[in-house]
């Protein structure tokens, strides 16, 4: 096969990716048109989601998604940064470092329905106790339970990225810091972490993207309530979980279209998270040099 033909076949495959992207976007846009015509931008601010009265507003799910993701990120960050620092800086033995990264990757390969089941049997009872102690209705399931399990699910992304970039901090500046009589901790916090801030930003955005779109485990744990959450103990729904739990039961066209609109929002938000993430990473990398 000559080079030109080979190149054409490869380009064809690359084109398929672009077409798939366009096709998915087109389906979402076309199918959500009825909702856009019915509500316009007020779909985003509508606080009611009621299939019986045919009223559809996305705000409870937007809030639910952001709340779960940010709480998850907040809970996960100290843990996964620590794991990344240990793996990237302290584990000098190649065996231990390798073993640790195998475990971390195993954590990422557990199917999310398994996380969901584990969450229901283990996390939910704990949250229930906490709710009783704090004087909230002891649902167990809800925003907090979903966020806790999500926090665990995003550890591998954040931790392995942190450890990778941590390993790339040049020995010369680490030696420079230690030769100034810095302790290892001072070196990590004062020199290494600032050096890898773009990598950490990338990790945060990668994790955020994962958290925003996570469906199965969240659907199992969040309580699937369509009202506005008013605390982290509330039952709720995310964009992904409401689509997963209601799509098969949607009876009206408008209900179905409203869910397509939610999917479109999720698609765009994930897309933008990625895009902004790359921008930030690019900028801070340029500033590092």
């Amino acid at each position: 096969m000559n080079d030109r033909r080979y190149f054409r076949i490869l380009s064809g495959a690359a084109l398929v990716i672009l077409l798939l992207f366009a096709a998915i976007l087109l389906t979402l846009v076309v199918d959500s048109l009825p909702t856009m015509q019915a509500y316009g931008l007020s779909f985003l601010t509508g606080r009611q989601w009621n299939p019986v009265t045919q009223e559809f507003g996305a705000l409870p799910f937007l809030v639910g998604t952001l709340l779960t993701s940010f709480v998850a990120l907040l809970l996960s960050l100290p843990l996964s940064l620590s794991v990344g620092i240990v793996m990237g800086e302290y584990l000098r033995s190649p065996f231990l470092s390798k073993a640790m990264s195998v475990f971390i990757n195993l954590l990422a390969s557990i199917p999310s329905v398994v996380y969901g089941l584990w969450g229901m049997t283990t996390v939910v009872p704990l949250v229930q106790k906490l709710e009783i102690a704090a004087g909230f209705p002891p649902y167990g399931v809800g925003i907090l339970s979903a966020a806790l399990v999500l926090a665990i699910m995003i550890i591998p992304y954040m931790a392995s990225l942190t450890s990778e970039v941590m390993k790339r901090v040049p020995d010369s500046i680490k030696d420079g810091a230690l030769a100034l009589g810095a302790t290892r901790q001072e070196m990590v916090t004062g020199i290494s972490l600032p050096y890898i801030r773009s990598g950490i930003a990338a990790g945060v955005l990668l994790s955020l993207g994962r958290a925003l779109g996570e469906t199965m485990a969240v659907t199992m744990l969040i309580g699937n309530a369509t009202r506005m959450p008013n605390s982290i103990f509330s039952l709720g729904n995310t964009l992904a979980s409401v689509v997963a739990s209601q799509f098969n039961e949607a009876e009206s066209d408008l209900h179905r279209s409203a869910m397509m609109a939610l999917a479109l929002i999720l698609f765009l938000v994930s897309f933008l998270t990625n895009l902004i993430g790359r921008k930030i990473v690019g900028k801070s990398e340029a500033a590092n040099v």
Partner: peptide, 12 residues
Amino acid sequence: GMVFQKPNPFPK
């Protein structure tokens, strides 16, 4: 104190 072969200022 120590000064190294290759200048190693911190990226600050």
